[in-house]
C-alpha cells in the first residue's frame, strides 16, 4: 500500500451558498511534493486551506466530508492542534514585526516551550532547514522585516518548521519573489520533502513540473486529475487537464 498521509473523502466546501469544492476524494503521499494547479477560482487555494482548517476562518464557511490526517479526521479536531501538524506559508512573505529569533520562538512558546536552550536549538535547526542560517546567524536580533523578500519567505518557512509539523502547505510561495529567490525556495522544497510532506499551490506550471512528484488539477471546484507529475506532463488522462496544460484556457 502506498504511504498516504492525508486521505480526503467526499469533501465539499461552501462559502455561504457558493459550492467551492465538489466531492473531492484523494490520498496525498507522505514525504512527497504534491502541486495543486488549475485556473483562477478553481478552488485550489480553498482546498489547500481546508487541510489545516484555515478555511474555517471565513464566517460563512461550511464543510461536508472527511479529511483524515494520520487516520484521524481533522474536521473533528481542534484547529489549533491541526495547525501544529500542518504548517502554512503564504504568497506574500509575512514575518512578524519582531526579531528573527522571536519569529522562530513564537510558535514553540505558544505551545508551552520555555527552556532557552531548547528554543535556541529550535531557532538554529529551523533556520538551517530553511537554508537561512548561514545568512542570518550573526544577526538573530535583527528584525525579520529587514530581510530581503526571498529571505523573509525562507524565514516564514523556518517559522512554520519551528513547531515541527508533518506537513507544509505552501500557497504560491514564490509569486512575489524574483527568479533567484524563487530557485532557492524550489531547492529548499526539494530538500525539505525528505522529511516533510509538502503541498504547494502554484500558478507557475513549470515550477509545478520542476519540483513536484504528484500533480492535482482542479477545475470549477472539482479534482479533475491527480497523478504522477511526469504522467500529467506528457499524457494527462482527462481532456480538461490536457487543454489546461496546453494553455487553451487559463
Amino acid at each position: 500500500m502506498e504511504n498516504i498521509i492525508f486521505e480526503i473523502k467526499k469533501l465539499n466546501f461552501y462559502y455561504g451558498s457558493n459550492h467551492i469544492l465538489k466531492d473531492v476524494e484523494c490520498g496525498i503521499q507522505k514525504n512527497k511534493v504534491t502541486a495543486i494547479v488549475g485556473p483562477s477560482g478553481c478552488g485550489k487555494t480553498t482546498f489547500l486551506r481546508t487541510l489545516n482548517r484555515m478555511s474555517d476562518l471565513a464566517p460563512t464557511a461550511n464543510y461536508t466530508g472527511k479529511i483524515f490526517l494520520d487516520g484521524e479526521n481533522i474536521l473533528d479536531q481542534d484547529p489549533i492542534k491541526v495547525r501544529e501538524k500542518v504548517g502554512m506559508v503564504f504568497q506574500q512573505p509575512n514575518p512578524f514585526p519582531k526579531s528573527i529569533r522571536n519569529n522562530l520562538t513564537y510558535g514553540p512558546k505558544l505551545h508551552g516551550e520555555k527552556n532557552k536552550k531548547v528554543l535556541d536549538e529550535i531557532v538554529e535547526s529551523s533556520l538551517k532547514q530553511a537554508a537561512l542560517w548561514d545568512e542570518v546567524k550573526d544577526n538573530l536580533k535583527k528584525s525579520g522585516m529587514a530581510l530581503s523578500g526571498g529571505q523573509q519567505q525562507r524565514l516564514c518557512i523556518a517559522r512554520a518548521l519551528s513547531v515541527k509539523p508533518e506537513v507544509l502547505l505552501l500557497d504560491e510561495p514564490t509569486s512575489a519573489l524574483d527568479p533567484i529567490a524563487t530557485s532557492k525556495i524550489e531547492e529548499l522544497v526539494e530538500e525539505l520533502s525528505k522529511n516533510y510532506t509538502i503541498i504547494i499551490v502554484t500558478h507557475n506550471l513549470q515550477q509545478a513540473l520542476r519540483i513536484s512528484d504528484y500533480m492535482m488539477f482542479f477545475y470549477l471546484g472539482e479534482l479533475v486529475e491527480f497523478d504522477r507529475t511526469e504522467k500529467m506532463a506528457t499524457k494527462p488522462s482527462d481532456k480538461r487537464t490536457n487543454d489546461y496544460l496546453r494553455g487553451i484556457f487559463s
Binding site: L205, L209, M232, P236, N242, L245, R246, G247
Partner: peptide, 10 residues
C-alpha cells in the same frame, strides 16, 4: 518560448 506540455509536448 512556450514550454509545451501534454499533447503539445508529445
Amino acid at each position: 518560448r512556450y514550454n509545451p506540455l501534454a499533447e503539445d509536448l508529445r
